[in-house]
Amino acid sequence: MEILETVFVRNSLVVAFAVVGLTIWISYFLADKLTKGRIHGSAIAIALGLLAAYFGGKATGGSTGVADITLLGGIGLMGGGMMRDFAIVATAFGVKLSELKKAGLAGVVSIFAGVIVSFVVGALVAVLYGYTDPVAVTTIGAGAVTYIVGPVTGSALGADSDIIALSVAAGLIKSILVMIVTPMVAKTIGLNNPQSAMVFGGLMGTTSGVAAGLAATDPKLVPYGAMTATFYTGVGCLLGPSILFFIVNAIL
């Protein structure tokens, strides 16, 4: 057992490659046999990943899901921000400039619309739950934008740590939901071309959610959605503690 642990820990990233590869193989097998290809294999793999993250978090009490289990620590590196961004940028290889230009305006509109709409919805829910303090309402609204905008806004405004935790939770729910629901509703919302993928990325904004949701829908759309999504958090951090807070402050 000790030898096993030594080998696994020393080669953590390699272990992660093997474990993820096995997970994807099982997922594609299940997608093929159980759903006859109706649910995409990568959607199942992502769902399995989230499920594993839940049990990993429950078992260890840590905050990085499966990666807190000693033997699977490499998952943390493989699925971390650095590798994610590296692979996302790589998907832009082969993207046509003309497609980007076509959706340019709609893409920019979607980023601002997405931040504002998510913020308003989150803030309204906070008010419905009885919050009247402008700082708390703004922080929770910002959490509904993304789980990065929430704490950035909250700490800029001096919100309590439990409100900040709440805003992170709201953002996490959003991100997880986008991962799972996107392939299911893709057809209904017309998510089948580069233009709508850019609008989708700008509206949802959660890079992880958009990245996983589009991967499970159609990997060809990933670069377009990811391109706009990566501007969303920046715009959210810009608007949250400033204009959006002033508006909330004026209303409440």
């Binding site: 992660a16 490659f17 993820v20 590869g21 997970t23 994807i24 990568s42 793999a45 992502i46 769902a47 399995l48 990943g49 989230l50 594993a52 993250a53 839940y54 990993g56 978090g57 429950k58 905050s63 990085t64 899901g65 499966v66 990666a67 998952i75 943390g76 493989m78 699925g79 971390g80 590798m83 994610r84 692979a87 996302i88 790589a90 998907t91 996490l172 991100s175 997880i176 991962m179 992880s208 990245a211 996983a212 991967a215 990997p219 990933v222």
Partner: peptide, 15 residues
């Protein structure tokens, strides 16, 4: 990219 996204899903703070 997809394998990395699966690993990313597995390290989210779902709890």
């Amino acid at each position: 990219y997809i394998p990395i996204v699966v690993a990313m899903a597995a390290r989210q703070n779902v709890v």
